[in-house]
């Protein structure tokens, strides 16, 4: 199942058309492969990027979708060993036993509130289990790198590359 616009993509597109602009203009190559972890990232991205994402709903959802595309793109350039490790983690977070082992609860991540996800991330971050720490740092780095790799997300940084 392809879910390029997991979060109310239709609404974002409609709003953009109404404004006469395209809020969502991916510059990266589209990812053709089935993107089975998109739903999982779609609940993690707003938590990890809280404060960085736009507040208005349309640009916010465009930024989330852009980041989800960038995550897919980032995954394709990682070496196979890292992709395998990440795949293992993501698969674990998508099945009940894995979620129980990693988070101490069987509640799927997709059903958790942002506050509950923060509690989970903090427990990993402060935890002593290497597996949980690596999960936290791995997901954090992947999401941060993917978001800030997109020039359209540099507005609040006041960063731009020089014109040569």
């Amino acid at each position: 199942m392809k879910r390029r616009h997991f979060i109310t993509g239709a609404f974002a597109t409609t709003a953009a058309l109404a404004l006469g602009v395209s809020l969502y203009r991916p510059e990266l190559e589209p990812v053709d492969a089935e993107d089975s972890h998109r739903a999982l990232f779609a609940v993690l991205v707003p938590v990890l990027l809280d404060g960085a994402l736009p507040r208005m709903s349309s640009p916010r959802e465009a930024a989330i979708n852009r980041t989800l595309d960038a995550i897919s793109q980032t995954l394709t350039v990682l070496p196979q060993s890292q992709r395998d490790e990440l795949e293992l983690l993501l698969d674990g977070l998508e099945n009940r036993l894995g979620v129980l082992v990693l988070t101490g609860s069987m509640t799927p991540l997709l059903l958790r509130s942002p506050e509950q996800l923060v509690v989970m991330l903090e427990s990993w971050r402060d935890g002593f289990l290497e597996m949980q720490q690596q999960a936290y740092y791995g997901l954090r780095e992947l999401i941060m790198a993917s978001y800030y790799s997109c020039p359209e997300h540099w507005g609040t940084l006041h960063y731009s590359k020089p014109k040569i």
Binding site: L49, D50, G51, A52, Y148, S149, H153
Partner: peptide, 24 residues
């Protein structure tokens, strides 16, 4: 640069976003 700074700092959410906003 944005990716370098974002990935080699600590935290996430608002505290991280505030740090990034002070990029310059």
């Amino acid at each position: 640069h944005p990716v370098l700074l974002a990935s080699k700092t600590i935290g996430y959410g608002r505290s991280h976003a505030e740090l990034m906003e002070q990029f310059n």
